[in-house]
């Protein structure tokens, strides 16, 4: 097991190098660079452009260097914790992202908790009452949730909130609290604003999770060892939780790895529609304006989190399931 973990950590290095190459290539793909689109923007708004300053900027950020040199520079800085400088915000990337990070994590966590709280009881009910009216009804709503695009749901909810209740549900807090220090009224305001994004972002995830819990649990419920447990005199609820439910959780644990990047990326499109101050819209804007360090560092950050998340999932699976822990390595 220990060797396995060491090996997996070692295998992360080439994966990340490959990811950084792909990310770097992609953000370099559009013609031009940030300075060019910056100049274009200035010209479009009718301002005069100081070519000397443009050249200075290019020099400063190494934009005139050859491709491989820029790549090495970027990766080198990344390793030492310097995520670069955002052209657009004129601030270090770590600061730009950092400001929005905790709100993003808040929204994501609220969403994940909501998903689990709703999906688990419903999924278990559907599996243990297969083909009952309850199962059919919940399945219907689940499929509905699965089929509705999140951003559409966001627009619909915004419309109804505005026309029926007369409240604006955009943002994550009332306008007067933005950039204010934390206080009780601000906290309450955030909680109020959290409800709609959480529901909107969580809907499809909840629906998908219900279906998966139901399917996995149904497979396990038919297994012989469940009958063994009942025949041993284990009370029905404990017989469900200790054996088939525990067994059906493998998929869920395997999923936790992919949650890590999802927490940080902050549901981009819904965040734009609801104008949430999370990292999602930041990433999109950075890609549009070719704010190379911001976009690149952000994507690289997500890639790293993905790899770490998958590793954590695999280790957790190894601890939870003796078959995975003990079976590896047999060969013919």
């Amino acid at each position: 097991m220990f060797r396995y973990i060491l090996f997996r950590i070692g295998a992360m290095v080439p994966t990340l190098i490959l990811a950084s190459l792909v990310i770097f290539t992609i953000i370099q793909l559009p013609p031009g660079d940030y300075v060019e689109s910056y100049i274009g923007e200035l010209l479009a708004s009718g301002e005069s452009v100081d070519l000397a300053r443009a050249e200075y900027l290019r020099e400063e950020y190494g934009l005139n260097e050859p491709m491989w040199k820029r790549y090495l520079l970027w990766v080198g800085n990344f390793i030492t914790g310097d995520f670069g400088y955002s052209f657009e915000y004129q601030r270090p990337v770590s600061e730009v992202v950092g400001n929005r990070l905790w709100l993003t994590i808040l929204v994501s966590f609220a969403t994940i908790i909501l998903t689990w709280v709703i999906a688990f009881p419903i999924g278990i009910y559907s599996a243990t009452h297969q083909y009952s009216w309850g199962d059919y009804g919940l399945t219907f709503f689940g499929l509905l949730g699965l089929a509705t695009p999140n951003f559409l749901l966001a627009l619909v909810m915004m419309y109804f909130a505005q026309t029926i209740f007369g409240v604006s549900i955009g943002g994550l807090m009332d306008k007067e609290f933005i950039d204010q220090p934390m206080s009780w009224p601000k906290f309450v305001s955030i909680l109020e604003h959290l409800i709609v994004p959480t529901v909107v972002i969580g809907t499809s995830g909840t629906a998908a999770m219900i279906r998966r819990i139901r399917a996995n649990l149904l497979d396990e419920l038919q297994k012989q060892y469940v009958v063994t447990a009942r025949a041993k005199g284990v009370p029905p609820f404990k017989a469900l939780v200790k054996y088939p439910l525990r067994m059906s959780l493998n998929f869920f644990v395997a999923d936790i790895g992919s949650l890590l990047p999802a927490i940080i990326s902050g549901a981009e499109i819904v965040a734009i529609v609801l104008s949430l101050q999370t990292t999602g819209p930041l990433l999109i804007a950075a890609l549009q304006s070719q704010d190379m360090y911001l976009a690149g560092s952000f994507l690289m950050f997500l890639a790293t989190l993905t790899v770490i998340g998958v590793l954590l999932s695999d280790i957790a699976l190894g601890f939870l399931d003796p078959r995975i822990r003990l079976q590896g390595g047999a060969e013919r």
């Binding site: 012989q224 060892y225 063994t228 447990a229 054996y243 525990r246 067994m247 399931d321 078959r323």
Partner: peptide, 8 residues
Amino acid sequence: MTSLSPLH
């Protein structure tokens, strides 16, 4: 082969 729980 199947009548015991593999996880316990």
